[in-house]
């Protein structure tokens, strides 16, 4: 199959969204970039499976999501982390090119179960419809709705408990990183 001439541009245009999703999903910038790279490679070697006219972004997100989950399962075995406690400690490393303004929010996001986190990211941040998100995650639309709802409830509960304006531990983190 001959790729469309603007395919390179389309893939490149999809990268910021894929990175944002991968960083938010994995909590690690380096790992996220590896995921995006693997996603692009896999997409290019499977172009014949892509139906022109359908949503390229949704297709790429599906690939990235599947790669993330297969890698996550593998890692979980490698680090002997059957209950996922290692994964739950994953956080975005603030020194890697991000401001600290959303530290509390990121922390709360990282504590969500991964199925809820990805559903919220797809619908609430990446701009996919419930239907598209369901297709990306390979589940029913009602499941996505339920996960998004639970994610929002959980975030609200966590952020209220910890108080988003509380500067306690966070101000120390800020001082340590800035000083």
């Amino acid at each position: 199959m001959t790729p469309e001439p603007d395919l390179r541009e389309a893939l490149l245009a999809a990268v910021p969204g894929l990175r944002a999703f991968a960083i938010s999903l994995s909590g690690q910038v380096d790992r996220a970039d590896d995921l995006v790279q693997d996603t692009l490679l896999r997409a290019l070697s499977n172009l014949h499976r892509f139906e022109p006219g359908t949503n390229l972004n949704a297709w790429l997100f599906t690939i990235l999501r599947n790669l993330f989950h297969s890698e996550y399962r593998k890692r979980r075995r490698e680090v002997e982390d059957p209950d996922g406690s290692f994964a739950s400690r994953l956080k975005i490393q603030p020194e890697q090119g991000s401001h600290l303004d959303f530290e509390d929010f990121r922390e709360a996001l990282s504590q969500l179960p991964s199925d809820q986190r990805e559903a919220l990211l797809l619908v609430g941040a990446s701009g996919f419809s419930y239907e598209e998100a369901a297709s990306i995650c390979g589940c029913a639309i009602g499941t996505i709705k339920s996960r998004v709802n639970r994610a929002r409830l959980r975030l609200a509960a966590t952020l209220n408990v910890d108080d988003m304006d509380d500067l306690g531990p966070d101000s120390m983190t800020r001082a340590a990183l800035q000083g």
Binding site: G17, R19, S24, L109, L121, G124
Partner: peptide
């Protein structure tokens, strides 16, 4: 909050 955090990542 979610979109603000995400926008920051998108703009990198």
């Amino acid at each position: 909050q979610l979109r603000a955090m995400y926008d920051e990542l998108m703009q990198q």
